[in-house]
Design a protein around this nucleic acid. Sequence first.
DNA 1: AGCAACCTAGCCCCTGGCGA
DNA 2: TCGCCAGGGGCTAGGTTGCT
Length: 418
Amino acid sequence: MAVRDFERFDVTTGETGKGDLFISEGKQYNLQGVNVLWSGVDTVRQLYQGRLRPEVLADIVTAYEQGHGAMISINNLDWAVMSGRRGGFRYLLQNREYGLTMLVQNFYAEPDSLGTHVKIETSPTWLYERGSQQVQDELNFWARHFLQACEPSGVAIHLAVDFQGWQPPQDFAQRFVTRAKTVSVYNGVSDLEWETGSTVNGRGETFTFGKANSLQTCLYDKSKEIDVSDKRAFMESIWETATNEQCFPDTCYDQEQPVWRLEIRFHHRIINEIADGTEGMPVIKSFIEAVPHLTGFWRYALRANRLEVRKNWVHPIWTKLRDDVVFTHPAPQLLYKRAKKEPGCGNEKNVSLAFGNLLSIYARNRFNPRQAWDCLKKSGLWDDLTNYYRNRDITENELFQLVQDGLIKRRLLGKVCA
DNA sequence: AGCAACCTAGCCCCTGGCGA
DNA sequence: TCGCCAGGGGCTAGGTTGCT
């Protein structure tokens, strides 16, 4: 049974297929009171691959070691230097006023070798004040400060739409169709997380579907949130610019009404998967490469995660938000789909993962280093493994040492179950 | 029923809290 | 102060689920 949308009708022009009157078998919704105030990119996280410049890193280390309140000046801007642990990086440089957070030195790559060593996160204000190309150029500029052979290596994007004139019904979470298992509803009193299928009583104020490291859908009362995050002046100045045919040239923003935000968060892994799985789409490693597809991403996400009025009938509000909202460019006619990365060459992480697993098995079977070494050579992993370590300037002697140490470590740590 | 999308396991490497 | 351990993010393969 196919998923269906209500038929649309525009009362002012008489056109079908658009407009705010939604009709299906015996039912009608009038969404004329719904006003989209703003839509756009809320956050960009741009990853960069490269080799860390030792002298720049040294400056950061020096600053960091000064402890709490450490600062560093880069290109005449002051940056607070903190631990970037939470984001998977060693250092975090932040200038809230300017609007960027830069994470430096990934934990999962050797600091002195090629790796994803810089991640830059933008604030909504920073983004709002710049065009797409300028965003990319400036992000690249900052990344180059830290990296040699600097290349964008992935991008995460949050798309958002702010609107008034509708609010989620009590049973919103139950009527929401999604594959995401982790669903949370925050109602201002208690934070609930549960597996899909359970029921939650009371009106929700924040709904989150999916995990942060995947595709995440979030619906919340932005007009409440801006007071918590101290962004009222900024957001209202944007909403004030919204208008429509009825109230033109005045704003259609109503201060008395709540503003709901629908936000779709694409982790860089998801963007990679969509680029891989969608025919006719090039690889997307940078924000600017993603820009032509933002509307396409949005529609893809709103098809997979949607509100229904009843089984297989998309709620008119969802149809409207999905089809009317545009991000910079109209959607290209592509069949957006996701695909996993093929295993095999080019997956460096894979090699170290396989190596670690293999060592665990050898250790479990009481291999001595010599036996492990010989078996490793015949394991089928050998060529990839030697390539992997050659790239890191590790000699065969050192590799043998790694095998030996790895076996010992696994024994001592009791990872070798009886 | 097929398959896309999500979840989990298991590795790595790190940090920070906690108890000794 | 030190060492241990839990926890968390990144990564991938492989299993599972539930949409289509």
